[in-house]
Design a protein around this nucleic acid. Structure first.
Length: 938
RNA sequence: GCCGACUUAGCUCAGUGGUAGAGCACUCGCUUCACACGCGAUAGGUCACAAGUUCAAAUCUUGUAGUCGGCACCA
């Protein structure tokens, strides 16, 4: 078989996805086991018109890894995919395009044709993100793809709205809200971000008292709002102003008379201790206004220009122009006391960065008290959902819930779920699932539907169950029964409040169960300088570019290799090292395939005992009665091919060792994934494959495998390495789906036989192969420590060679002094030692008997010497030995200090103490050998 | 103001009450018949600082400094 020397990711990436999808591998129906445990994940729906960014790539990788892992284990898996209509950002995008193409605004073309345009836009560009999701290799079930504005999901939205309204948890009210003058819509508190203003100023304005020379000075950052002032407030305890409470001020520029009121809200220490009160433009003033029954004067339009209430002189001015003008006027009147620089943070629209204007406005709200209690009870009762990492997110989530305020859900947009409320001529409201229902309630068809739409997150809040078919009318589906609650939600910390908490609340409310058991909060991918990636900074890294450059699998490994929940700086070097890893896997496989004639993947090479058991199961009990399992002939009788070369009898130390390492790795990988410690799993697999399998196992069995003598033991060795490799590919598959499938398909002996039993009749693919669980009984401590002894000897000889600058072509004899048992191990592995240490011969003895001109080293199990007549540099050798000795002595000193502490010996666990004693004895032995060696050099 | 996280090798980061780890970079040597996206061998850290708990602290507690994040407030 001709295979390229370097792995080309693009070939593999173009080949397999469509095949998997066409074969139905992503859908739960592929699972033939009616009893299979379900496993489900819903994808956080990306914006329908959005593009993939690193945050998506990260969370998608984690989810897909989990789903592929569980699927291979035989779970009935469902990975739900879909997109979000993303009200504001989509509407903005289309509005911008409309301006560009036709130089028109949405109002120019009207609501209906605008919405039509958005749907067209969605059809045209909505496919981009889903194509990118395919490129990532996500094993999502496309047959169940959803969009938040699908009919059924919209039905669910209306149902939830109506029910919450009917029980009084949705209401309409006039409140101070966050108003974005640019997007011209209200925003929830979560869509507003506080940012430092560039040059904040504090203006000190004087308001004259009526019929008096006295003035009160108020400090404000927004002088233009004084046009809407309806009072000045002071603290009732404030001596300075006590006499003035109840008196009347003449509000400059307006001619209005306003009272001085006393309220605890005012802090005497701040500013002048007197606060101007603008109930229509500030939340605190609004509350205070209610307490004192003050009028609310709205002086602004929806685009933050001043309206006629501000007076003719100001009407039509932008808020900042108005501010300037007000200040000038005060100055002219001699009422501007001073202007100070002042650090002020202002609320900004998260999307367009415009400064938010607090505005009194009539909106729809969700009362959160009942819903909040449901979520908090769940946490108290079941500690659910469980957050990973638990610290700090469980507390962040809980604290937020505890302080939850009502949720503003109406938006002055056209794109979204229009609020299912209708009004008659009298302005009476009728909330209903449909226009017909509303008409019935109103007793007239002459109704107008509320113009506003719902916050995008309102529909997202239902995502875990609306995607599975719940819409109020339909409340039970096979999918809901099987897959809800879902198993785990993977998302970023920025939407714990926006999305995670709301899903919990709605799911508890409407289904009576949690939406997911666990929540993984992943970290943020930062740029290489540790800065957040952002469009404005132009420092974003496009995952698609990275796929292009290094391959999808390498990218996935990089992302999965970052610790759960921790931010990490993006470095191309990291991906590069995983690209190299992919290439390593490619080439290791290439090597095995180049030497695969006469061999195939056959899992009994891993575990002959299990094979025996399986044979017994296959042939049935009646036959077994006739067979003595201990009989050497047993296997010959049942499987002739097997009997020709019973691998059970022929396993070398290296074979036993790699089987042990493989099983240990498999066990640990499964354990790590179970705890969502992806980076641990990645590291385990990386080192098992590269260090154990490539650097040692392949090298140890290379001669055997590449032997030109055709015989059964060579073929058995070839089959063994193929089998180990195949297991490794399976372990890697959830992380590196493309590469592993590409290679797995090339391995001789791979077929649907290797599938998990749940996928017996599906077309052969590694994604349905049984995920290796690891078998603790196949962990062979003895083989591992014996192999370590061999590895230590080889490493030490290599060390001597490197330090003494021995040419690769020179092959000195290696002398080893060791116990009889250890000698036996070295003897059995003589060929490997000679090959890997580039030695000419091996001399084993109880004690070393070598000339003075020898380089020496010690390992835990052996003393090593290389006679190097003429090659050795005595000074260098002395320095080398002293260096080794120095390290041992330092360690000895530390350990001895512990042992001489009576408290330690008395109180520490005995095995700890014994462990240190053993180590000290080992160091003593090695050190004394080194001292003798040094002595011999003199 | 409240809450929280982080500070470990030159860089990016794991780790965890019991002898300090990885990848990359660096140094030295290798066209060894899978791979130079490679192989082999080194070097490199008083685990931010200080005090405390403990037989034992990089790991737990407290404090300090620096970095960053969330929430609230901001006349």
């Amino acid at each position: 078989m001709e295979i390229a020397k370097t792995y080309n990711p693009k070939e593999a990436e173009s080949a397999h996805y469509q095949k998997w999808e066409a074969a139905g591998c992503f859908a739960p129906e592929i699972n033939e086991n009616a009893e299979a445990e379900p496993y489900s994940i819903v994808i956080p729906p990306p914006n329908v018109t959005g593009n993939l960014h690193m945050g998506h790539a990260l969370q998608h990788t984690l989810m897909d890894t989990l789903v592929r892992w569980k699927r291979m284990q035989g779970y009935r898996t469902l990975f739900i995919v879909g997109t979000d209509h993303a009200g504001i950002s989509t509407q903005l995008m289309v509005t911008r395009q409309l301006r560009k193409d036709e130089n028109k605004s949405p109002t120019d073309i009207g609501r209906e044709s605008f919405i039509q345009k958005v749907w067209e836009w969605k059809e045209k560009y909505g496919g981009e993100i889903t194509r990118q999701i395919r490129r990532e290799g996500l094993s999502v079930d496309w047959s169940r793809e959803r969009f938040t504005m699908d009919e059924s999901l919209s039905r669910a939205v209306r149902e939830v709205f109506v029910r919450l309204y009917e029980e009084g948890n949705i209401y309409r009210g006039n409140r101070i809200v966050n108003w974005c003058p640019k997007d011209k819509t209200v925003l929830s508190d979560l869509e507003v971000k506080e940012e430092k203003a560039k040059d904040g100023k504090l203006y000190y304005l004087q308001y004259p008292l009526k019929d008096s020379d006295r003035k009160i000075t108020v400090a404000t950052t927004r002088p233009e709002t004084m046009l809407g002032d309806t009072a000045v407030a002071v603290n009732p305890e404030d001596e300075r102003y006590r006499a003035l409470v109840g008196q009347t001020l003449e509000l400059p520029l307006t001619g209005r008379e306003i009272p001085v009121v006393a309220d605890e809200y005012v802090e005497s220490e701040f500013g002048t201790g007197a606060v101007k009160i603008t109930p229509a433009h500030d939340p605190n003033d609004y509350e205070l206004g209610l307490r004192h029954d003050l009028p609310q004067i709205n002086v602004m339009n929806k685009d933050a220009t001043m309206n006629e209430n501000a007076g003719a002189e100001f009407a039509g001015l932008d808020r900042y122009e108005a501010r300037q003008r007000v200040v000038e006027k005060f100055e002219e009147l001699g009422l501007l006391e001073k202007i100070e620089d002042y650090d002020v943070t202002l609320p900004h629209c998260e999307r367009c960065k415009t400064v938010i204007e607090p505005l009194l406005s009539e909106q729809w709200f969700v009362k959160m008290d009942d819903l909040r209690d449901l979520a908090l009870d769940l946490m108290r009762r079941e500690k659910a959902p469980r957050f990973f990492p638990e610290v700090p997110y469980e507390k962040v989530y809980t604290t937020w819930l505890e302080n939850l305020k009502d949720w503003t859900i109406s938006r002055q947009l056209w794109w979204g779920h229009q609020i299912p409320a209708w009004y008659n001529d009298a302005g009476d409201v009728f909330v209903a699932r449909t226009a017909e229902e509303a008409a019935e309630k109103a007793g007239t068809n002459d109704l107008v539907q509320d113009e506003d739409v719902l916050d995008t997150w309102f529909s997202s809040a239902l995502w875990s169950f609306s995607t599975l078919g719940w819409n109020g009318e339909v409340t039970e589906t096979e999918d809901l029964k099987t897959f809800h609650p879902t198993d785990v939600l993977v998302t970023g910390r920025d939407i714990i409040f926006l999305w995670v908490s709301r899903m919990v609340m709605t799911s508890l409310k409407f289904l009576g169960e949690k939406p997911f058991k666990d929540v993984i909060i992943h970290g943020t991918v930062l740029d290489k300088n540790g800065q957040r990636m952002s469009k404005t900074k132009m420092n974003g890294i496009d995952p698609l570019d990275v796929f292009e450059k290094f391959g999808v699998d390498a990218t996935r490994m990089t992302l999965a290799g970052s610790a759960t929940g921790v931010d990490f700086a993006w470095r191309d070097e990291k991906v590069e090292s995983f690209r190299n890893f992919a290439n390593k896997i490619w080439n290791a496989t290439r090597f095995c395939l180049m030497n695969s004639e006469g061999a195939e993947v056959d899992y009994f090479y891993l575990n002959p005992q299990a094979e025996t058991t399986e044979i017994i199961e296959t042939i049935g009990d009646e036959l077994v009665d006739d067979i003595d399992e201990e009989d050497e002939e047993f296997l010959d009788k049942v499987v002739p091919e097997f009997a020709k070369d019973n691998p059970k009898e022929n396993l070398s130390l290296a074979d036993k060792w790699i089987v042990s390492r493989l099983n240990r790795t498999a066990l640990d990988v499964n354990k790590s994934l179970g705890k969502y410690e992806f980076h641990t799993a990645v590291s385990l697999l990386y080192h098992f494959f590269w260090d154990d399998f490539c650097d040692w196992y392949i090298e140890l069995v290379k001669d055997e495998i590449t032997s030109e003598t055709v015989n059964t033991s060579r073929d058995a060795a070839r089959s063994r390495i193929l089998t180990i490799l195949e297991q490794a590919l399976r372990l890697l598959h959830p992380f590196m789906p493309y590469l592993t499938e590409e290679l797995w398909q090339k391995l001789p002996g791979t077929s649907r036989e290797l599938h998990n039993a749940a996928y017996a009749s599906a077309e052969a693919t590694i994604m349905l192969a049984d995920y290796p669980a690891g078998d603790a009984s196949l962990i062979d401590e003895r083989a591992e420590s014996e192999m370590q002894a061999v590895i230590d000897v080889i490493s030490k000889v290599r060390n001597i060679r490197a330090e003494m600058q021995i040419k690769p072509s020179d092959k000195p004899t290696v002398h080893i002094a060791a116990t009889a048992d250890a000698q036996k191990i070295f003897a059995q592995n003589e060929a490997q030692i000679l090959k890997l240490a580039r030695a000419g011969g091996l001399v084993l003895a109880e004690t070393l008997d070598v000339p003075k001109a020898s380089a020496k080293a010690v390992t835990a199990a052996a003393e090593i010497a290389l006679p190097l007549e003429g090659l050795i540099d005595f000074e260098k050798e002395t320095a080398r030995l002293e260096n080794q000795l120095g390290k041992l002595e330092k360690e000895h000193e530390q350990l001895q200090k512990q042992l001489s502490n009576a408290n330690f010996v008395e109180r520490a666990p005995t095995e700890k103490v014994q462990g240190i004693r053993d180590r000290v004895a080992e160091i003593d032995a090695q050190a004394s050998a080194l001292r003798q060696n040094l002595e011999a050099l003199r």
